[in-house]
Design a protein around this nucleic acid. Structure first.
Lengths: 353, 353
DNA sequence: TAACTAGGTGACAGCGTTGTCATTTGTGTG
DNA sequence: CACACAAATGACAACGCTGTCACCTAGTTA
């Protein structure tokens, strides 16, 4: 296929040194006299030598590959994460190994361990819901596999592993407050999957906003479900059948909101004049409805990139014998409120695009 | 937990064979007696053995890594492809390097060449629209980089590179014929992106069905656009404004169909009793509408998997000095008609789930 | 002067797998 | 029964690199 590349031997021969010395140079180990260094570098340049990664990995030492582990049904989210991670990896000369898996799989830890070993991964990047499962994390800790995780959380947990916190709680608080400011007091909440921490965080934010504004929390308005269009439809239907239905629905994500919107419009209600609907995530769903959805934007791509950058930094600086250094990265992001027509009475816009 | 991973030696010992025989099994080289094979496979399973990629790459002249190259806005499609490829790669002990890129980028060939070299890839898997761009293909041919591509096409092009053909044409024919059987004669067609061959193939199928049944093709009913929800909305609106609007709309994919469905229902029309709508692809969109969409299912995951399997087989069997052997894989798939409520007058179902 | 240091350097043994080629086993033939 | 020939299997040397450890200088100390 491609040209046979120069090996370390060729370089050594040309520079008149042993292969070990060449290795010292390429790995910046030091202990090389300046003029030897010069000669070797010249030979490397002349032959356009690039160390063979396979041989390098085989022979031992660290690897230049990360793994991205996910179990998330949301294709948009996963691809956004993946693209962000990939962008940073390319920049830093790292490889990325993708690993979709099933969180319910009992042998998940073995599976991950095998993969890490096989591909000689330097560490793992883990997104929800896997990143929020204690068993998985302690399993990895036990095996001493480094990882950074993205989770839903409003506060940094000190002394824990590298982590990126998405402050869903405060963002949900803001969305709810926005609805209250629009004059709503009967605000329903459609919650996503039990196993996603974001479901709970967003609900907490919702409840806190109600409390702050002295609105009684009403259990009939709070329905638990899953992050799906279908639940949005059924949840909204259930709400509308109440003798005193809500005037607004805050859905735990855009997919649910799209379902709710669909169901509500089928009942002949106008959005937002008769009922307001808000989502969360700023996924394509939120723009592919009419009216477009008010939501909270989490720039997943950017988050993934920054997380990856921090993680790489962390990996190369950390000492194996000193796990408790102060360089453990803890990033925080808060999704931004995005106001659109689905909750804005005054700003109705008939244009779908 | 198995900190020390099993090597080929351990497997060989447990199975009572030489390491070479184990290698034969893991690489499906053949020349292994059934009962030996059985024993080795059992040992592999028992030890949870996974070949070390670094060692393989080093030892063999070939590499055990593939690249997946895509430039496709459809997250569901990309992820389906990716998961399928990945599943097969895992089975075969191959690594996968993901490479999202921009088809409009002028230096795309250089970009791919660099990546192939850096990651020592054995070959590339390419999906539309990149797989349908002649410049890209000839560029890769020139560099002698092996690839398999997935394209929309109804006929095998002999003497070309490995290829997977998705017979969109015949499937579109069937969908159109189904609409005709339902009594429709005013059938509109909303076409997707110009640069996707599938747009054209599906339209050809549509036209052929009209012709076969003696229905005059009407240009006012045929609108070109893009694979997006927005186009579905605007396209449908445009159709409904005709003084003689169509009684059914065949959309080039589910996203367009979902948009069309949305627009049509906003106009107060009932689906399917007043107007029928069909999509294509069987994406989640097709199930997240009400009524659910009639569509054509292309099992992307399976297709990706089989394509990968053939490609690996091809790569390991092919001789560098004999590029024109008869083993060049040419797979064909035809999307299956999926009948749902959006086109079935008799079978209306109020249940959204 | 001998002994001791430390900075440079090289010889060599793996790392886990595949390729090559030799060897063993089985099968059909005269 | 011996013989040829194919199928199945194994022994062993790569593959390109790093880790270990021994060695060789000079320069320093007592």
């Amino acid at each position: 296929m491609l040209k046979n590349k120069a090996t370390i031997k060729d370089v050594a021969e040309l520079a008149g040194v042993s292969i070990k010395t060449v290795s010292r140079v390429t790995n910046r180990e030091g202990s090389v006299k300046p003029d030897t260094l010069e000669r070797v570098n010249q030979a490397i340049e002349q032959l356009n030598y690039q160390p063979n990664t396979a041989a390098r990995n085989l022979a031992g030492r660290k690897s230049y590959a990360l793994g991205y582990v996910y179990d998330n049904p949301n294709a948009y989210y996963v691809l956004d994460m993946q693209n962000g991670i990939l962008a940073e990896c390319r920049d830093r000369g790292y490889e990325l190994v993708i690993h979709p898996c099933s969180a319910t799989n009992k042998g998940i830890i073995d599976e991950l361990a095998t993969m890490v070993k096989r591909s000689q991964l330097a560490g793992l990047i883990i997104s929800p819901p896997l990143s929020e499962m204690p068993d998985v994390l302690t399993g990895l800790d036990k095996l001493n596999i480094p990882y950074i995780r993205v989770i839903s959380g409003s506060e940094v947990q000190v002394n824990s592993s590298p982590c990126v916190y998405i402050n869903d709680r405060d963002a949900a608080f803001e969305i709810t407050e926005h609805l209250i400011e629009q004059g709503h007091t009967k605000i329903a909440f459609l919650r996503g999957d039990e196993c996603h921490r974001s479901s709970h965080e967003r609900k907490i934010g919702y409840l806190q906003a109600l409390e702050k504004h002295g609105i009684q929390s009403d259990h009939r308005y709070q329905i638990d479900g899953s992050y799906s269009f279908e639940f949005g439809v059924s949840g909204a239907k259930q709400l509308l059948q109440l003798e005193d239905p809500p005037t607004s629905i805050f859905s735990c994500n855009d997919e649910i909101a799209a379902g709710a919107l669909f169901a509500v419009r089928l009942e002949g209600l106008d959005v937002p004049s008769q009922i307001s609907i808000a989502g969360f995530e700023d996924s394509p769903f939120s723009r592919q409805t009419w009216p477009k959805l008010t939501t909270a934007a989490q720039p997943t791509n950017v988050i993934a990139r920054k997380a990856t950058a921090s993680f790489i930094q962390y990996l190369s600086s950390r000492k194996d014998d000193d796990p408790h250094n102060d360089l453990v990265p803890h990033l925080q992001f808060k999704p931004e409120l995005v106001l659109r027509e689905s909750t804005l009475n005054q700003a109705r816009n008939e244009n779908v695009n």
